[in-house]
Amino acid sequence: MLLADISVFDIISTATYGALAGVALWGLYCIVVVWTRVSQKRFKNEDEQDVFMDDIEQMVTTGDFEGVAEYCEGDARAIPQIVEMSIHHRDLGYKRARQFVMDRFQRDVMSDLEYRLSWVSTVIKAAPMIGLFGTVFGMMGAFNTLASSASVNPSDLAGDINIALRTTACGLAIAIPLMILVANVNIKIAKMEDLVGSGLGRFMSVYREALSRTPNGSAAASSVDPNLAMQSPK
């Protein structure tokens, strides 16, 4: 008897709330992942990065490649990992090593961020549409209540209209904050790219000069653990 009392409109409205909750949680999860990942990959400010780059430039200029690798080892930030990979792949030569590390950075860091943000964009578009879907069925339920009885209880009609309006409001309440968060995250990503670009420019300049002065110095790369040499900038 209990199942018989539940209408298809009640089932659909409940499913709509569940779908809205699901997309909201997924969108928030992706935002948190991107936010955390960007924070892990960038220096807190340019001054901190400059101190790091000063140490790197000094070691690279003196040809202390192993010291550079040890200095960067275990650092999860983008610049140290790019520097470490460049040092491990210096036997490829400047141009090929530079291309290799940039491809790895783009594939393993930036592509992952773009993948997560694309999901958030999908949630922003889908949430209002799911809310509109609930609105349509809420209004259908209201008209069904009107058609099923000559005298309609106003509370029954108000319940259907309430569902119709509430689902749209929930969809907008999900989409609007996520839009603001995405804009904030995009600013953080842009700042990270600027810092990485400036640091990479400084490193590649001294790296190229160091390789040109020690054409045979890259032989030391053969002694590097190949597992470390293929380390990803994640």
Results as ranks from 00 to 15, higher is better:
residue 51 V to F: 07
residue 174 I to G: 09
residue 4 A to V: 03
residue 28 L to A: 13
residue 25 L to I: 15
residue 13 S to W: 00
residue 158 A to T: 09
residue 5 D to H: 04
residue 129 M to P: 00
residue 10 D to T: 01
residue 164 A to G: 08
residue 101 V to C: 10
residue 31 I to F: 04
residue 183 A to V: 14
residue 10 D to Y: 02
residue 119 W to R: 10
residue 101 V to L: 11
residue 42 R to G: 02
residue 12 I to K: 05
residue 187 I to N: 04
residue 199 G to Q: 08
residue 196 V to L: 14
residue 176 I to L: 12
residue 35 W to R: 11
residue 215 P to D: 00
residue 40 Q to F: 03
residue 3 L to V: 02
residue 75 D to V: 01
residue 38 V to D: 01
residue 131 G to A: 05
residue 109 V to A: 09
residue 60 V to C: 13
residue 103 D to V: 05
residue 125 K to C: 04
residue 112 D to N: 11
residue 133 F to S: 03
residue 79 I to A: 07
residue 159 G to C: 00
residue 224 V to F: 15
residue 108 D to I: 01
residue 56 I to N: 06
residue 171 G to M: 08
residue 128 P to T: 06
residue 45 N to R: 11
residue 119 W to D: 03
residue 64 D to R: 07
residue 109 V to D: 08
residue 168 T to V: 08
residue 13 S to L: 01
residue 209 E to L: 02
residue 231 Q to D: 11
residue 181 L to Y: 01
residue 124 I to E: 05
residue 136 V to P: 03
residue 93 G to V: 11
residue 12 I to F: 14
residue 188 K to I: 04
residue 199 G to A: 08
residue 24 A to G: 13
residue 164 A to C: 02
residue 99 Q to R: 14
residue 214 T to F: 01
residue 33 V to R: 14
residue 8 V to E: 06
residue 175 A to G: 06
residue 75 D to P: 08
residue 14 T to Q: 04
residue 230 M to C: 09
residue 97 A to Y: 06
residue 102 M to W: 12
residue 79 I to V: 13
residue 32 V to Q: 05
residue 83 V to G: 07
residue 129 M to A: 15
residue 157 L to A: 03
residue 69 A to V: 12
residue 40 Q to D: 15
residue 214 T to D: 14
residue 22 G to Q: 05
residue 208 R to T: 02
residue 117 L to P: 03
residue 84 E to M: 12
residue 23 V to I: 15
residue 21 A to Y: 09
residue 172 L to T: 06
residue 214 T to E: 13
residue 47 D to H: 10
residue 186 N to K: 15
residue 20 L to D: 01
residue 70 E to M: 12
residue 1 M to G: 14
residue 75 D to S: 12
residue 132 L to G: 09
residue 135 T to I: 03
residue 211 L to Q: 12
residue 6 I to M: 10
residue 187 I to Y: 02
residue 62 T to A: 09
residue 89 H to I: 02
residue 156 D to Y: 00
residue 74 G to H: 10
residue 125 K to E: 07
residue 71 Y to E: 10
residue 222 S to F: 07
residue 81 Q to I: 01
residue 100 F to Q: 09
residue 98 R to A: 13
residue 106 Q to K: 13
residue 129 M to I: 13
residue 55 D to R: 09
residue 153 N to F: 00
residue 107 R to S: 15
residue 37 R to V: 01
residue 50 D to S: 14
residue 167 T to W: 03
residue 102 M to Y: 06
residue 81 Q to C: 04
residue 85 M to G: 15
residue 80 P to C: 11
residue 205 S to W: 04
residue 164 A to I: 01
residue 146 L to F: 12
residue 101 V to W: 06
residue 4 A to M: 07
residue 230 M to N: 15
residue 221 A to K: 07
residue 113 L to I: 15
residue 188 K to N: 05
residue 106 Q to A: 14
residue 215 P to M: 04
residue 118 S to K: 13
residue 227 N to R: 15
residue 78 A to N: 08
residue 43 F to C: 06
residue 101 V to T: 13
residue 197 G to Q: 13
residue 214 T to L: 02
residue 115 Y to I: 10
residue 120 V to Y: 00
residue 181 L to T: 04
residue 152 V to T: 11
